[in-house]
């Protein structure tokens, strides 16, 4: 089952930003989103994740299959690394957290409070969360922010492993992860002023 997006138009803060976005993400594949800042990549990912309704268009194959990683990692500073991860594991139906800890080399930090981690370590923990969800489609928004070179490699390995297991990933990023992935530039899909008519047309 693949993730299929057709003729998608989305708005941010009541203003249409992208229109006519279409792609198919088959199992085992990754898709990289590119485009200048503010074009609406985050909005697109949030829409695919089901957090906001599209203005127009359809998203198929997303229901209960998506794990979403936003800019914020959803970590609690007063919980330890293991507690944070265990919580998300049990929310998504209890899987072991050991593999996830190992993938991002977090074992030594296991009992540290998340509040005492560096920005990069927090990010690694946030990404490790994706591994415990057991969801096949990863939707990730700038996942490599504040990661060093080694951590980026860990992340790329984790994604490769995920794809090899039949998962897929939709990633908005500007750096080259060395993945065998298609690239979608959303720049040409920037909403034209006419798209406003779909939204506020009654008032114009």
């Amino acid at each position: 089952m693949s993730l299929k997006v057709t003729d998608l138009s989305i708005a941010r803060g009541g203003v249409p930003v992208l229109e006519g976005v279409a792609f198919t993400l088959a199992d085992g594949c990754a898709l990289i989103l590119r485009g200048p800042n503010g074009i609406g990549k985050t909005t697109l990912l949030r829409t695919v994740a089901g957090l906001q309704p599209p203005l127009k268009g359809a998203i198929e194959g997303a229901e209960d299959r998506i794990a979403y990683a936003a800019h914020a990692d959803g970590l609690k500073p007063t919980l330890t690394v293991a507690e944070n991860l265990t919580f998300w594991a049990s929310v998504f139906g209890a899987r072991g957290i050991d593999a996830a800890l190992a993938a991002y080399q977090l074992e030594p930090l296991k009992d540290r409070h998340a509040g005492n981690l560096s920005a990069g370590q927090k990010r690694r923990l946030g990404l490790a969360r994706m591994l415990v969800t057991g969801r096949p489609v990863w939707v990730m928004d700038e996942p490599t922010v504040s990661l060093d070179k080694e951590a980026v490699a860990m992340f790329a390995d984790a994604v490769r492993g995920h794809l090899a297991n039949g998962g897929s990933a939709l990633i908005a990023t500007h750096i080259d992860l060395g993945l065998d992935a298609e690239v979608l530039d959303v720049g040409p899909h920037k909403a034209k002023p006419a798209a406003l008519d779909d939204f506020d047309g009654d008032f114009l």
Binding site: L51, I66, A67, Y68, D73, G74, K76, F92, G93, R129
Partner: peptide, 13 residues
């Protein structure tokens, strides 16, 4: 603020 709510909204719960 810490984004947990977004993540919870996409969780099976």
């Amino acid at each position: 603020e810490d984004g947990s709510l977004d993540l919870l909204a996409t969780a099976p719960l």
